[in-house]
């Protein structure tokens, strides 16, 4: 059924429309604490007062340590939240994730919190790039694009990672 280019193109379009609908549907969900979905950065930046006395889960950079204050972002907008009842002592620049109750004057009463030093994020993104590069190289070495079938297929003689790198450096992309 999916043999012809035409039927594949139609299925592809249907899938992309389905995906877009999922993005819109998910975007329209509102917080539902009973299901474990709490108001977060976006909701609080949008309208803090609406979530007064509700459980919220936010994270942001620590911009002040006495009292602990974090800046949370949503799009281009940010707000500052005071964090009270915190057991831990974060340093300025740390990332703080907080679960607690939204109180008056943009103050969060902490129930649980996690501190992560900023460099840890650098580590996480750095090592993730290594993972992405490895998969990328294996894809280039193990798969080829067939222009007539307009489809990817496994190579009969997959290249190892080292071979793929030298293949890329040679600039011989005809295979």
């Amino acid at each position: 059924m999916l043999g012809s280019h035409r039927s594949r193109a139609i299925v592809l379009i249907i899938l992309l429309i389905l995906l877009l609908s999922l993005f819109i549907w998910y975007g329209s969900l509102s917080p539902d604490p009973d299901k474990g979905r709490f108001a977060g950065n976006d909701e609080l930046v949008e309208d803090y007062e609406r979530y007064l006395d509700e459980k919220v889960e936010v994270s942001g950079e620590v911009i002040e340590t006495d009292p602990v204050t974090i800046e949370i972002e949503s799009g281009d907008r940010t707000i500052e939240l005071k964090i009270v009842d915190l057991q831990e002592e974060p340093d300025q620049g740390d990332r703080l994730s907080v679960f607690g109750t939204a109180g008056e004057n943009k103050t969060i009463h902490v129930q649980n919190a996690m501190i992560r030093p900023f460099w840890r994020y650098g580590y996480m993104y750095g090592i993730s790039l290594v993972g992405a590069a490895w998969v990328g190289l294996r894809l280039i070495g193990g798969w080829r694009f067939d222009k007539e079938k307009i489809a990817f297929e496994p190579r009969n003689d997959p290249m190892g990672v080292k071979e793929t790198i030298s293949f890329l450096i040679r600039g011989d992309h005809s295979g």
Binding site: K35, G36, R37, E57, S97, F99, M114
Partner: peptide, 10 residues
């Protein structure tokens, strides 16, 4: 994964 709320994702 550890989260602050103790709840994971959907």
């Amino acid at each position: 994964l550890i989260t602050a709320s103790g709840y994971s994702y959907a």
